[in-house]
Design a binder for these strands. Structure first.
Lengths: 200, 200
DNA sequence: GCCTTGTCTGACAGTTACTGTCAAAACACA
DNA sequence: TGTGTTTTGACAGTAACTGTCAGACAAGGC
């Protein structure tokens, strides 16, 4: 895994990371709207064309999906006694914990941007459809059960339930632990609201 | 109310309706992306500037909010024995029923566009934050209860729960009754998934 | 080392959604 | 009819994308 997968691949990964890092830095410094793709490309020392090859839109630099394959796996494999919502919390929580603190800095910056820039907030919500779908499938796997409308609704409701209460925390949640605490509190609430009916 | 509110207002309303009608017609004929704002403006016999005065973005021609003040009112005033989800169904259902069939045609066209054009679908989901907020407040009013995080989560979950199952109906739902049936079936499911805990 | 093959990059031109400004036109009201 | 306000159209400008194409660069066989 950590062994070199070819010079080409490594270079691509580095370019991508550089673009994202520089972009976030500029967004923070000058504001999202005021930072042009051209400026980002210049800061990352690539051409605008290259920028768009790595990120299809300017938004996507900030909105990389927060529910990845690893999170899904942790959700499915979570201790059996946990409820669905608890398992989800568990998955996200351990994900945050495993994050190197350098990455967490970036993550934190991303979250602040999403919270503060309306356009990004909007994009984030729009992007939630994918996590919903992923969660639905993951629930199916965790329960060893066909994905039906009940599961799809449950998944959508679980993600949708967080939309209005997330922007709430105006405080910054700079360190991982505070964020996790917040998350746990929220999801405990969510667990009392949601119930997945038995199949059929 | 129905008496003329001045020539000016009437003309504005007509212009707005014309723009929207022409836009939807062109979207249907040529496709959403292939129809430029300039073309819409020309078809509606206004200037592009005027188009943007009536609709801040091209998307907004299609994405006029489906949860308006009247729906909220019907929700709040729905029979007391109905559950929250049932009351919501009731509100939407009666809203559809009251729609003149000409308007329903347009509504139907809009729904098809939203379903079929990815960009619009995305926009629709992004726009759901507002209905969520409206629903949260409406729930507070209906229950005569302060809007807290439980209510916010419930509202978000109720709307979010529909996201994955709505695109499902590939069939067209051309007539209002079929649509209502579909809606009722969905929301009955939703009612078993969601529970609003008592305050505190 | 060298050459071929496939991939990545940069330059460029073009489209279009959207913004802001300003003078002219259309309406409201006396 | 005249005056003040609102609405409109023309125009210029910005910036996010899209598509194309030739040149640079890495991978792998010789």
């Amino acid at each position: 895994m950590t062994t070199s997968p070819g010079l080409r691949e490594r270079k691509k990964a580095r370019t991508r990371a550089t673009i994202q890092r520089e972009a976030l830095r500029l967004f923070q410094r000058d504001g999202y709207a005021a930072t042009s793709v051209e400026a980002i490309a210049a800061a990352a020392e690539v051409s605008p064309s290259t920028f768009f090859r790595y990120f299809p839109t300017k938004e996507d630099v900030v909105l990389t999906d927060f529910m990845d394959a690893a999170t899904v796996e942790r959700f499915v494999e979570a201790p059996a006694e946990l409820s669905l919502v608890e398992a989800l919390t568990h998955a996200v929580r351990t994900g945050i914990a495993e994050l190197p603190k350098e990455d967490f800095e970036l993550e934190h910056l991303r979250n602040r941007l999403i919270r503060d820039v309306p356009e990004l907030r909007r994009g984030m919500v729009a992007e939630m459809v994918r996590p919903m779908g992923l969660l639905a499938e993951a629930i199916g796997r965790r329960l060893g059960r066909e994905v039906d409308d009940d599961i799809r609704m449950f998944a959508g409701a679980a993600i949708g339930g967080m939309v209005l209460v997330m922007p709430e925390h105006g405080h910054d949640l700079g360190d991982p632990e505070a964020l996790v605490d917040e998350l746990v509190a929220r999801t405990r609430r969510l667990d009392r609201i949601l119930t997945l009916p038995d199949p059929e």
